[in-house]
């Protein structure tokens, strides 16, 4: 797979950060996952253009890059909504009833895990154990862990969070 000539430093600071990650690993193919992490952090998600540039720079086939990007739960190929509600579906959280929260979310927002509302306000994701099992059931609102709440408390909290957010 022929590599293209080095990118000149671009005005795109996001791409520069991605390039720095690749550079840290000497542009070796094994840097792919670390690079995808940086790309998602900076761009918010992994779009085809970015994936193509990474493939080119690391000398990895585009199909392989796509294969890696789609293998792992963490990587998103679609942009996320303004707010993200992550419901932990670990064992302790399951035993403490988080599937009810998922069912409620489907009813309230019409979302299945992995989907975003049409107005882009809210994304719903499933997380397989954040490791806070003693706080079960765990819900994560925009990265903040909220645990130990009953179903009524959780749903009220989510309503409040979405109502307050963006005002």
């Amino acid at each position: 797979m022929p590599r293209s000539l080095p990118d000149h430093r671009t005005d795109d600071r996001r791409w520069n950060a991605v390039d720095r990650t690749m550079q840290r690993h000497d542009y070796r193919p094994e840097a792919l996952i670390e690079t995808l992490h940086t790309a998602q952090e900076r761009y918010g998600f992994l779009d085809p253009q970015t994936l193509g540039r990474i493939a080119d720079r690391l000398g990895v086939a585009p199909s392989k890059v796509l294969g890696v990007a789609t293998f792992y739960n963490h990587f998103r190929l679609q942009p996320a909504g303004e707010h993200t509600l992550a419901v932990c579906t670990g064992t302790a959280c399951h035993v403490k009833g988080n599937d009810r929260i998922l069912a409620w979310a489907r009813e309230q927002f019409g979302l299945s895990p992995g989907e975003t509302t049409p107005d882009n306000r809210l994304s719903l994701v499933e997380v397989r154990c954040v490791g806070a099992c003693a706080l079960a059931p765990v819900i994560v609102t925009d990265g903040e862990i909220r645990g130990k709440k009953s179903f009524a408390e959780s749903t009220a909290m989510i309503g409040e969070w979405l109502g307050d957010a963006g005002r």
């Binding site: 094994e30 792919l32 996952i33 392989k64 890696v68 293998f71 739960n73 963490h74 990587f75 397989r128």
Partner: peptide
Amino acid sequence: RLGAGAFVCGEETALIASVEGGRG
């Protein structure tokens, strides 16, 4: 090295594949 969310990567050989930058 960061994982990216794949239970199977807890298995030794899958973990290695992931460290090598590939699918687990």
